[in-house]
Simulated scan of single mutants.
Amino acid sequence: MAEGGTRRGSVLPGFGLSMGFTLTYLGLIVLIPLSTILLKTATLTWGQFWDTVTAPRTLAAYRLSFYASFMAALINAVFGLLVAWVLERYDFPGKRLVDGLVDLPFALPTAVAGIVLTTFYAGNGWIGQYLEPRGIKVAYTPLGIVVALTFIGLPFVVRTVQPVLRDLDIQVEGAAASLGASRLQTFLRVILPEILPATLTGFTLAFARALGEYGSVIFIAGNMPMRSEITPLLIMTKL
């Protein structure tokens, strides 16, 4: 408080200017692009709209997108937690390099990621040539979609869990062990309650990111209707 009981003004812009800028920014970046979808939908009659969203091809795309996104987010929740744990609790040669590689899906264009993954997992690819003789076909199948979505979603879990593990006092684990708790009990009763909210947040972010992913999936999916066609691709074909 300034002298005389008056409130000292902030050096930052006032509420009106800040709110105006916020609404303008959200309108240009979020609302206007989304409104084009609504305007496109408005050109359809209710019957046409219902037939489109309930067509067998559309329902198959819904099922595949939600299933693949959920499985990829679930895989990332488990292995992302493991990666975050290793990066925060252990020192090893090349740690900074590994930590930087976690952000590679953020920096790599999604189309490039899709092409690289397809090259790896195709029947004649570096990895696919060993998997297909064993009956595991990745490229141009729903499994390939899960692989692509897992790749682009991993950083969301790792970067969400890392700060929580960094702030978690390791002495608490030692105290639990000194009281007779096993490693499993220490993890379930001491560590898990602390990292579970962050893990669920990372899972949700990875799931949401996977639902809308387009670039990395279309190259490895094969885009076959009723089999490997995702919802974002179907939306693109309808616009």
Rank of each mutant, 00 (worst) to 15 (best):
residue 3 E to C: 01
residue 5 G to T: 04
residue 12 L to A: 07
residue 14 G to Q: 05
residue 15 F to I: 08
residue 15 F to G: 12
residue 16 G to H: 09
residue 17 L to N: 11
residue 18 S to M: 14
residue 20 G to L: 14
residue 25 Y to K: 01
residue 25 Y to H: 12
residue 25 Y to A: 11
residue 28 L to N: 00
residue 28 L to S: 10
residue 29 I to Q: 15
residue 32 I to L: 14
residue 32 I to K: 10
residue 34 L to H: 01
residue 34 L to R: 08
residue 35 S to C: 13
residue 35 S to Y: 14
residue 41 T to L: 00
residue 42 A to P: 04
residue 43 T to H: 06
residue 47 G to H: 04
residue 48 Q to D: 01
residue 48 Q to G: 06
residue 48 Q to Y: 01
residue 51 D to H: 13
residue 51 D to L: 12
residue 52 T to P: 07
residue 55 A to T: 11
residue 56 P to L: 14
residue 57 R to K: 14
residue 57 R to W: 13
residue 57 R to I: 15
residue 59 L to A: 13
residue 61 A to F: 15
residue 62 Y to E: 15
residue 64 L to I: 15
residue 66 F to G: 04
residue 66 F to R: 08
residue 67 Y to M: 06
residue 67 Y to S: 11
residue 71 M to K: 14
residue 73 A to D: 10
residue 76 N to R: 04
residue 77 A to T: 13
residue 81 L to Q: 13
residue 82 L to I: 14
residue 83 V to P: 07
residue 83 V to R: 09
residue 86 V to K: 15
residue 86 V to T: 14
residue 87 L to D: 13
residue 87 L to T: 13
residue 88 E to K: 00
residue 93 P to A: 07
residue 93 P to H: 08
residue 93 P to L: 07
residue 96 R to M: 12
residue 97 L to M: 10
residue 97 L to A: 06
residue 97 L to D: 11
residue 99 D to V: 15
residue 99 D to Q: 15
residue 102 V to D: 12
residue 103 D to N: 04
residue 105 P to K: 09
residue 108 L to H: 00
residue 108 L to S: 06
residue 109 P to D: 03
residue 109 P to A: 04
residue 110 T to N: 06
residue 111 A to P: 06
residue 112 V to I: 06
residue 118 T to K: 08
residue 119 T to I: 01
residue 120 F to G: 03
residue 120 F to E: 08
residue 121 Y to F: 01
residue 135 G to R: 13
residue 136 I to E: 02
residue 136 I to K: 00
residue 137 K to C: 01
residue 139 A to K: 09
residue 142 P to W: 14
residue 145 I to S: 10
residue 149 L to S: 03
residue 152 I to E: 02
residue 152 I to Y: 03
residue 155 P to G: 00
residue 156 F to P: 00
residue 156 F to R: 07
residue 157 V to E: 07
residue 157 V to T: 09
residue 159 R to M: 03
residue 160 T to C: 12
residue 163 P to L: 09
residue 164 V to N: 03
residue 169 D to L: 11
residue 174 G to W: 01
residue 175 A to Q: 05
residue 175 A to R: 02
residue 177 A to L: 09
residue 177 A to R: 02
residue 177 A to C: 10
residue 179 L to A: 12
residue 179 L to V: 10
residue 183 R to T: 10
residue 184 L to Q: 05
residue 184 L to G: 08
residue 186 T to N: 03
residue 190 V to E: 08
residue 191 I to W: 00
residue 191 I to V: 00
residue 197 P to D: 06
residue 198 A to T: 06
residue 198 A to H: 12
residue 199 T to E: 08
residue 204 T to C: 11
residue 206 A to I: 00
residue 206 A to N: 03
residue 206 A to R: 12
residue 212 G to L: 15
residue 217 V to D: 11
residue 219 F to D: 05
residue 226 M to S: 09
residue 229 E to G: 10
residue 233 L to Y: 09
residue 234 L to P: 08
residue 236 M to P: 07
residue 237 T to W: 11
residue 238 K to Y: 15
residue 239 L to M: 07
